[in-house]
Design a protein around this nucleic acid. Sequence first.
DNA 1: ACATTATGTAAGTAAGTGTTTATATATCTT
DNA 2: AAGATATATAAACACTTACTTACATAATGT
Lengths: 202, 202
Amino acid sequence: MKRETTEIRQEQIKKAVLDIIFNEGLDRLSTRNLAYKVGITEGAIFRHFKSKRDIILSIMQDVQTNLISDLRTIALSAESAEQRLFSFLCKQCTYLIENKGVTILLFTEAAHMNDRALKEHLREILIEQKSLIGKIVKDGMSEGLWNTKLNVDDVTTMYMGIPITLNIELTLNHERFDRDNFCRRMFSLLQHMLSIQNQKRM
Amino acid sequence: MKRETTEIRQEQIKKAVLDIIFNEGLDRLSTRNLAYKVGITEGAIFRHFKSKRDIILSIMQDVQTNLISDLRTIALSAESAEQRLFSFLCKQCTYLIENKGVTILLFTEAAHMNDRALKEHLREILIEQKSLIGKIVKDGMSEGLWNTKLNVDDVTTMYMGIPITLNIELTLNHERFDRDNFCRRMFSLLQHMLSIQNQKRM
DNA sequence: ACATTATGTAAGTAAGTGTTTATATATCTT
DNA sequence: AAGATATATAAACACTTACTTACATAATGT
């Protein structure tokens, strides 16, 4: 029997987790099925992770180190607020589309397991994203680009609806969802919302 | 032992489902725990519902007949588009806040069970809501109230982010979430987005 | 070449899952 | 009051769950 290092097995196991969620649904995410997918026995799984919960936490950590750090780079770059907001939105959408399993896992498992640490972790990921968007919005206001009368927190709340809705539509509609220029279309609406305007009516 | 009609037991069982989800998490939603909560034995559960899946489908049906019919009434009423949009949003938010268990159940169980019929049902609920909002938006445009250049589908997609985000924040933040005037604040942003405007910049 | 260590397996654990069966009894109808 | 029916129970069903144990062997360092 061929043997692999813990590092390689951990990657294989995490990859298999996302694969199962995407192709078979969360209720098929058992250690038995997981072991079968990786091509090892159930016992071997627990050689590389001390529990199933630990696998999920490790995947969350990956999101933290991959997606969030990319988003941080975009939010803090030297470009215009407008350009940064667009790049930020595109990055989020691309990630959600390419890592569908991850987001299903995060959102549903937090509610499902009723696990405080897991929920807290997810909460931090969302809060961090919101604070980065908040920075971009504030910068855009300072630049005289956007309406300073808007409440920044409200704008970020509204903004976060976009990736979350995208995720739900992807889950439910699978391939029927119209993702062409999704970022561009949503960005255009955000611009209307943020713009300094002379309203014709109240 | 006291006996109740199937109708009463069905209501008690469905109530217990939402109770368990809210207070203990979805993973504690076993027929055993359910029976214990209602105060009957497991076997009795299956006298009133033919399967656990049927209980969830029945709850979905309740959402359909309660929430959706209320929303339809609002959307098709004689009031102004502006007033209808606000009432619609408020109704949705109130329902989500008062029936947290329901929405956790719907969103997560669809992904979890990978159940086509269940997913389809949820998809229909969302599509129906979107089409009602679409009608309000189109009416508002005809009334000369809102920007006719906006894509109605995009607006409804953006709109749907609001209740969905609210739901996620409620799940994760529990009581820390600032729900004061939530509808009013989000509605104000929607108005900015929809308004006919003279933009100062592109 | 040999002892050590990391990675594996096969078979088990106890507890939990949704569901069914055989049986009892409360309630309703006649 | 007697019979029919609906509602209950207790106990089991066959199966799955995450996880553990005892033991084996491939890879590694000396």
